[in-house]
Amino acid sequence: MMSLHDAVTVLKEHRGDAVVVTCMSAGGAWNRVSDRPERDLPIRPMGKGMNVAFGLALARPDLKVLMLDGDGSLLMNLGTLTSVATQKPENFYHFVMENGVYAITGGQPIPSKDVASFAGFARDAGYAAAYEFDDLEDLSMNIGKVLQEKGPVLINLKVEPVIQNLPPGLRPPARRSWITALREVEAHLNGK
């Protein structure tokens, strides 16, 4: 099991010019380590980040797109695995931060906790490859190679939950709203 912060810090070292789309807990952790906000796309509606990332990967095959998803978020939208697998976007890398809980609502267990395999879902849906890492050193040693493979690839990361117990109104505000971020990334990618 890895800390979420350590896992995204490793990913940051390997992102290159990739656009990084985030959803749920992964977004906050990523924002704290990323130094390229013009290529970071946080998507707020739960379960929809992977769709946005998939659409971007289709529209821009010249870009590498990394999706940092949550496990509960992916469960909301499992069918998209088949939509992605059908189109075979070679530039799409789908990370799942598997912490087994709904972290931002207080840590209630997700339905598939200790039962399902996200890498297995992706493999059987038809992704080109699927991997799972639960050790930071193993991730550090191998993720560069995985990101050179042709997508779509799902990479499941076993991470410790970072539970939010503060009511939403008492949480610190984001540095920029997700809608502002989306507009900035859109402008950056299209030279506006």
Binding site: G49, N51, V52, L58, A59, N77, T82, S83, T86, L189
Partner: peptide
């Protein structure tokens, strides 16, 4: 045209958003 069949309709708007962010027309 690139035709993108999906499994559930709720996917379509979010995929379309990604296509728009990428500068294309969904």
């Amino acid at each position: 045209f690139t035709v993108v069949p999906v499994a559930r309709e709720g996917e379509t708007m979010a995929i379309a958003a990604g296509v728009l962010i990428g500068g294309k027309t969904p």
